[in-house]
Amino acid sequence: MSKPTLPAAPTPTILPVFVFLAIGALIPLVLESGFYIRLAMLVWTYAVLCMGFNLLYGFAGQISLGQPAFYSLGAYAYAMLQIKLGWSPAVALGGSLAFVAVVSLLIGLPLLRLRTHYLAMATLAFMLVENGVANRWIDFTGGQSGVEVPALKWAGEEIGRTGIYYTVLGLAAVVLLLHDFLIRSHLGRGMQAIRDDETAAQALGVRVDLYKLRVLVLSSVMAAIAGICFGITSLRVDPSLSEFHVLVSLLTIVVMGGLGTRFGPIIGSVIVVALPQVLTGFGRFETAIYGACILVFLIFLPHGLSGLVERKFQWRADRATADAKRRKQVLKEEVS
């Protein structure tokens, strides 16, 4: 009798991540039109913004409606550090991320004591404050018209659209890898535990408050990276980055893509960026259809499009089953 082969534990592979990145890397080679490359950059920008929110709300269960504020702050800081302080783009990138990290820490320390609706409302208030200041502090932020973001340069020359695209893709790749690592590792498990039952997580030695704060800071930094992507793509930052429609896009993406899934943010971003291109035919109905889409997904596809393929957390369960089978096999062999 042949020895039965041990079932391989279906460790969730990192392969899909590389597939997404490979597709991303091929886009400029396939699509020549500048318009489509701009759309692709917008997809990555939104995907980065939404991955942060996905970790925070989809996994750790802490809602923040203030993500557009961090998105906007990241972009403003990146521009200002270059314009006002003359920092180089790379240093300004680090500086603006550090700045947003500190701001989110200061916001998170008091606000994370709040729960559910109160947390949602308070973070929304933070977004309105940020937007109010961006609009009104005209001497510094340029008010409605915003500020110009210096173009990226390489060896003294402005880099072209393809160069900008690969810069955005590079930033997105870092966030995507981090996002995926967190979800698949014990840290993702810990975040889900906090979402499901804080008291039990605490009893098991998880420092719940610290975890929440860290996830908030991380997701804010991811939002800031998205803001910087937006800045280097559009070369302008204005208060519209923290306006309500950004929040609506963000929620639409995570709901349609699938909240708390591995690839929901990317899939959702592709759809939300592509949808208006398709919907232009609907003209005045566009906004209403946007709302209807969110609603239909919430009711009929609560795990989003990504959930259709991924089955939310199914890989965790499959892996556990396979672990158990393998162990049984090992025991059987030891006995015989």
Binding site: A288, A292, I294, L298
Partner: peptide, 23 residues
């Protein structure tokens, strides 16, 4: 659905009402 999901649902409702009023 979780309470916050329902909240997002009412947000969708708000967008639809606004969108229809806009039309």
């Amino acid at each position: 659905a979780a309470p916050l999901t329902i909240m997002i649902g009412t947000l969708a409702g708000a967008i639809i009402l606004y969108g229809l009023a806009f039309v």
